[in-house]
Design a protein around this nucleic acid. Structure first.
Lengths: 131, 131
DNA sequence: CTGTATCCCGATAGATACTG
DNA sequence: CAGTATCTATCGGGATACAG
């Protein structure tokens, strides 16, 4: 372990990669690293409170099952709240908690990065595959 | 927003977290959202260039197979470089590209967030489970 | 409208053994 | 040292049907 790399001093304190062997990172990725969580968070963060069907429409390709599961997990982790109104027809609204909003900010950065570098990644992949 | 979608679609540009319907986010998560990629990126970002075995030691729990696969994928996407030296015994060094380092910066933020909020998440989860 | 309950398949990843 | 080759177990997630 030779910390000879320059300009990474701010990392050593919290060690982004493995402060605890990577457990916290892994735990986090296990929640938001799945197929839909980040998109749900991003969508709610943009539009504010949304009901189930609206959410489903705004996230093309998601199944009822996966939307339900994703919402339950995020609710369980305190990233969003679920509010059911006793009406007919039933109405349920999902809304980000402050905790969820803070994660959304990172999600936005990740999305930005993805958009900014997608072409480069695609190019790199094509080149790699031709070799 | 267009309610007509078929398969992998595009979402309106109104979604800050997913300007392209989440395709870029999904693509990115498909690379770094797996079990080991972020840890590899973080470790390389912290320690600088590392060889295979050193990397394996710094990431407890990873198997040879998964380390190899993860490195190949990251190399393919242009996030790190692989340099083999014709020596005996053989030596191979992995190093982040600038692109990889830019992603690492986001990984750091995510890790930070994870560390800062892990307790809150755990608490929320326990409460959710008791209800 | 807002979910649950099953069935099922392909991808992911762990363990193990072998190699240049 | 730095991988590759298999085999296998698990599991996320899609399709579908049903329900409160």
């Amino acid at each position: 372990m030779s910390p000879t790399h320059n300009g990474i001093t701010e990392l050593s304190s919290t060690c982004a990669a493995a402060p605890d062997g990577g457990r916290a990172v892994r735990e986090t990725l296990d929640r938001i690293g799945d197929k839909w969580s980040l998109l749900v968070i991003g969508t709610l963060g943009l539009s504010g409170p949304l009901r189930f069907t609206t959410l489903a429409r705004q996230i093309p390709g998601i199944s009822q099952r996966m939307l339900t599961l994703t919402l339950r997990h995020l609710e369980r982790d305190g990233l969003l709240t679920r509010t059911a109104y006793a009406e007919i027809p039933p109405r349920v609204e999902y809304e980000l908690t402050p905790l969820g909003e803070s994660l959304r900010d990172i999600a936005v950065e990740l999305a930005q990065w993805a958009n900014d570098n997608m072409d480069r990644i695609e190019a790199s992949r094509r080149e790699f595959d031709t070799l």
